[in-house]
Structure formats: C-alpha cells, structure tokens
Design a protein around this nucleic acid. Sequence first.
DNA 1: TTTATCATGGACATTGTGGGTCTATATTAA
DNA 2: TTAATATAGACCCACAATGTCCATGATAAA
Lengths: 156, 156
Amino acid sequence: MQFSKSTDYAMHALIHLAHSERRHNVGIKELSATLGVSESYLSKIMSKLRQDGIVRAVPGVNGGYELARPAEQITFLDVIQVIEGRQQLFECSNSNSRQHGMLAEEGAARPGKSECLVEKVMDGAERHLHQYLRDHTIQSVLDEAFKRCGHEANKK
Amino acid sequence: MQFSKSTDYAMHALIHLAHSERRHNVGIKELSATLGVSESYLSKIMSKLRQDGIVRAVPGVNGGYELARPAEQITFLDVIQVIEGRQQLFECSNSNSRQHGMLAEEGAARPGKSECLVEKVMDGAERHLHQYLRDHTIQSVLDEAFKRCGHEANKK
DNA sequence: TTTATCATGGACATTGTGGGTCTATATTAA
DNA sequence: TTAATATAGACCCACAATGTCCATGATAAA
Ligand code: SF4
Ligand code: SF4
C-alpha cells in the first residue's frame, strides 16, 4: 500500500512546470535533469499526463510541455489517479463465499442492493482520502513554498 | 494502490471469529470452508495475525484460533497494518535532486529540519486515512449487521 | 503414553506489476 | 529540408502477491 515512484515523479514534474510557467515549453531534457530521472522513463509518465489532459505537449524544435490548465486546478487526486489508475482501494474478492451471505444479504432476499458492510467502511475511507487529496493542488504547494521563502527573507 | 487480497481474507476471518465467539477455538478447516480460501494460504495469514497479537492459537485436538482481545478493540487499521506492513503511503525517492533543494531547503541552509512540502500533504492524507480506519472496528461491522438484521425482522 | 488433531514454518511455483532501457516513428519550427 | 522533440511499442529485470506442499512441533483426549 504505497504510491508508486511514478506518482512521485509526476508530482515533481508538474511542480516544475508550474514553477517555470514564464517561458512555455519545458523539454524532457530539462525535466529529466531537474528530477534526476531518465528521459526515457519520464517521457512515458509525461505521455500519460498528456493523454489525461493534465499537460499539453508540442514536438519539434523548442517544443516541450506546459500545463493544460492553471496549477490551482490540478489536484493531487488528479495526478494520483492518472498514474495509479482509478481502481478502488478495496475490491471484494470472495463475494460468493458463505460469509457474504451472512454479512451482506442478511436473511432477506434483497433484490439488487446487497450493500456490503465491509465495502461500506472501505469506501468511506476512500472517499475521505479522495476529498483530502482534492483539496490540495499543485498551486497550493507552490504557494506554501513562496510563503516560506518570504518568511525566511523577512527573518533575514 | 489497492489493498491486497490477504487483507480481505484477514478481515473476513476476524469477522467470523468475532461472530462465533461462543465456543472458542475455530479451526483452520472451518475458516477455510467459510471463506472459500485454501487452508494452506489462510493459515499463513492467521499466523501473521497471531504474531502481531490479534488472535491467539492453540494446537492439538479441538484447537484453533480465537480473538486475543475484544472485537471492539480490533480496528481496521490494525488488520491492514499487520498484513500490508507499516510503510508510509508516500516515500520520497529523489531527495537529492535539484527539485528538493528548491522545494524543501528553500534558500536557507536549515540544519536538520528540511520539512518537505509534498510529504507534508501526503502525510496529512495518510493521517486522515488512518484516523478513519481507527474509528472502525470488527465489532462495529457486526453491530451494523445485527442492527440491519433486527430492522429486517421488525419490518416483517 | 500414545495418538489423532491441529498450527507453524520453510521450500518451492506461478503470475503480475513496478520500474526501466532502447529504438523507430511522427511531428514541428526554423 | 533538417534538426530537435515527443510518442509508441518492444523488451528486460527484479520483486512482490498469491498459492501449494510437506516436514515438524505442540497439545489434549483416549
Ligand atoms: S460481505 Fe462484502 S466484503 Fe465480504 S464477501 Fe460479501 S461483498 Fe465481499
Ligand atoms: S521536495 Fe520533498 S518530495 Fe520533493 S524531493 Fe525533496 S523531500 Fe522528496
């Protein structure tokens, strides 16, 4: 139960893009050098981000990547779901066991709504997690970095 | 990013143990039959649960497993951490990149406290998730099952 | 004490996935 | 056109998840 390294890379790549939004089109070379990840691998990740509409890409001389929408509209959840996929946290694997009958259908022969109790808890956990991740964007990280930077400067 | 099947099995095994707490010592055979998982594999999972003090086990005739503490003191988080391990949700993999300098140490040469901003968000997410999972126990699932059962009975 | 019953641990096998490299191809600006 | 760049696919390897099988050890009942 851990986020993959790809997610880590994607986050940092986006942060870098957002940070150097001044002149557009940051190439894979620059990203690779900044993050310390091979161009080959990183380009795959960027490709995924493009397919899901997080970034735009233009090939050719002076090409590169740029954010497809403002950084405050790119949430942690967005990035994670692009890289990790949208599978849910918990997926029942033995819904035809004896347990299932006892826990989910509990006596009565409900039509369609089985409403599993274990899944209910787990889905709740997932919803909480997602809500939290939706409340934090690339921009919010940058903002905090700036705030701290300013704070440091003032102290000096 | 998904919980393993083993976690699923562990949850259901514990629910079964809690449900038939009347006569102690539920054997691996009964558990296996109830969950529809091979005895071999399930016994491994139970062994883990024992090592972490979730259940007790006694070998010999009429032996088996029983909860090591009341079901209301066994949280979802407990079970998940036993099976999945206690690694944190997010672990930075490139803390010596250029990014890191820009984001975490931001200008000043802080002594030990680097206080990464990305990790800060992720750890927050993890804390939220853990808190939620701590608030739900094996007993709470059983309670809801009973409540629903009673509700169904009353309606009839 | 013997024995049937049960849990435990280790040694495998299989499969899937994360993480990564390399190359050929398409696309664009100069 | 040409140089620079992104893209897609074919591979590779290591490791974890899932699972089986067997030898061993512990225990209570007979
Ligand atoms: S009760 Fe829920 S988690 Fe358990 S077997 Fe049924 S659907 Fe799956
Ligand atoms: S800023 Fe945080 S997440 Fe990024 S490299 Fe540094 S420690 Fe890791």
